[in-house]
């Protein structure tokens, strides 16, 4: 059972639709007690980083998420803004994140967008990935739908698990222990994202 964390900023309908269609049991909740007892979490999110963190604080969700992920080692998948929120810090709003993955979230460096690429990066981008269970059986070449103006910047390249190019190459997937973040939208990425979500639901997370 996957618990999708509801805090008013996600495209929850889309994620739930995709999980239900894929035969994955899920529940949607913003109740800290429910999240406290969840065995697997998805943190969605669309919008502004600071607004999202403020909302998570207001609803008393920051501590419970951190505690469950750090102490109980509950697997968590962050999607889009949810993937950014698991970082330490974001330039969007100049605020701290959930600090579950040693990375910062930075704006696209416009000086490096030399072919007139626009921000936000919006559309389908072919996304190579590391050979890990999260991407098992995903059809190749895998492509995913992206919409974002900021991207991950990992301290340690070993945490990077997927990459995309928009003006330059950046990490679009990260994994640090039981925490995974993806910049793209698997719930809106046809069979590619469907397989990824199935893998997340089924994969084993060792320490």
């Amino acid at each position: 059972m996957i618990t999708i964390i509801e805090y008013g900023l996600g495209n929850l309908g889309s994620i739930r639709n995709m999980l239900v269609r894929s035969g994955i049991k899920c529940t949607v909740s913003g109740d800290p007690d429910v999240i406290q007892s969840a065995s697997r979490l998805i943190l969605p999110g669309v919008g502004h980083f600071k607004f999202a963190m403020d909302t998570l604080h207001e609803r008393g969700l920051v501590t419970v998420i951190q505690q469950r992920v750090r102490e109980a080692r509950v697997p968590l998948l962050g999607i889009c803004l949810g993937g950014q929120l698991i970082g330490r810090y974001s330039e969007e709003g100049d605020v701290a994140g959930l600090d579950l993955v040693p990375m910062d979230v930075v704006a696209f460096d416009r000086a490096r967008l030399t072919l007139g690429e626009k921000v936000p990066h919006m559309g389908w981008t072919v996304t190579p990935h590391a050979d890990i269970p999260l991407f098992a059986s995903v059809q190749q070449p895998a492509r995913y739908y992206y919409v974002h103006s900021f991207h991950f910047r990992c301290d340690d390249a070993h945490d990077e698990i997927a990459w995309a190019e928009h003006g330059y190459r950046f990490a679009s997937g990260v994994r640090h222990g039981n925490v995974i973040g993806v910049q793209f939208h698997p719930e809106k990425s046809h069979v590619y994202g469907q397989q990824l979500l199935r893998n997340f639901a089924a994969m084993e997370f060792g320490a």
């Binding site: 639709n17 739908y145 990425s189």
Partner: peptide
Amino acid sequence: ISDIVSEAFMP
């Protein structure tokens, strides 16, 4: 609209 979008796994 809900019925229609529940069949669409794209934006």
